[in-house]
Design a protein around this nucleic acid. Sequence first.
DNA 1: ATGGCAGAAGCATTCTGA
Length: 281
Amino acid sequence: MLIATWNVNSIRTRLSQIIDWINQVNPDVLCLQETKVIDDSFPVEPFEKLGYSVEVYGQKSYNGVAIISKIKVENVKKGFCDCKDSDQNIEIFLDQKRLISAHINGIKIINVYVPNGSSLESEKFEYKINWLSCLASFIDKQVKKGELICLMGDFNIAPSNLDIHDPIKYEGGIMASLCERNALNNVLKGRLIDSFRIFEKNNGHWSWWDYRNKAYELNKGWRIDHIYISKELSSKLKSSVIDSSPRANIRPSDHVPVMIDINLNDINVDFFEDEDDFFEI
DNA sequence: ATGGCAGAAGCATTCTGA
C-alpha cells in the first residue's frame, strides 16, 4: 500500500503535474495540502477518471487539505471534531481548513497542514503552538480508541538539525525552534515514528526548497513534510522516500511528495480484533 | 544584512507563505 503526502501549493495551478505524478507512481492514497480552493471548486473529475475518490476540506485562497484514494474511504472527519474536552478552545481553529482524516484499509489516515507561524515573536507563532497542542489531544483520542495511525502532511517543522541544509544559520528560528520541536514531540509522544528516519539516518534529504534565492538550484532545502506511523506499523514498513523530482518541473510547488510503502497483508486481521476489544469497553 | 519568488484576489497592489 503506497501512501503519499504533498503540499501542492494550489490544486488548480498544479493539477496537471499532480496527475502526471500519479500516473508515474500510482499511489493508493495521496494526501494534499494547500489546495487553496473551496470544496465546490476542487477539480475532482481528473482524479475520479483514474479510479480515485476525493475527499476535500478547503477554503478560498489559503490552506485546504484533501484525501485522494483508490481504496475505500470511510468515516471522513474534517477539522478537530474529536477534541471537545481538550484544554484547547477549538473555535479559533474552525476557520482555517488544515486537517482531514479518514479510515482507509483499517488505518486512521490523518492529513495535516500545520500553520507556518511566521516568526517566534508573531501571534501566528502562538497559533501554531496551540494548533499543535490541539493536534496532540486529537491524537491522544485516536490512540485511546485503539486506532492504527498514519499522520502525515506539511508540519512546517524540521524535527532535527539533520533536516536543515544550514542548521547553524537557522538555529532557534522559525521551523527550527526548540518550542516547535517540543510541540511536535508532544504530538508524537514516542508512539508515532518518523517513517523516513527508520531508513535514513543522514542529512541532505529535503522536502521543501524556498522559491527565492535559487534555493533549489543550490540545494538549500529543509525536510518539513513528514509521515508518522504508529509503532505497531513500523515492522510492516517497506520504504519511506522523498521524491524530489517534481521540484524540477516548470512552475513547481515548493514542496515535493513524500511516500511510504507498507505491507498490510497481515495487519487488518489484528486490527479488527483489536477494534472488537475496544467496542466492548 | 537584505531581498528574493509564487499564488490568490482581482486589475494595482496587497496579503500570505516558509
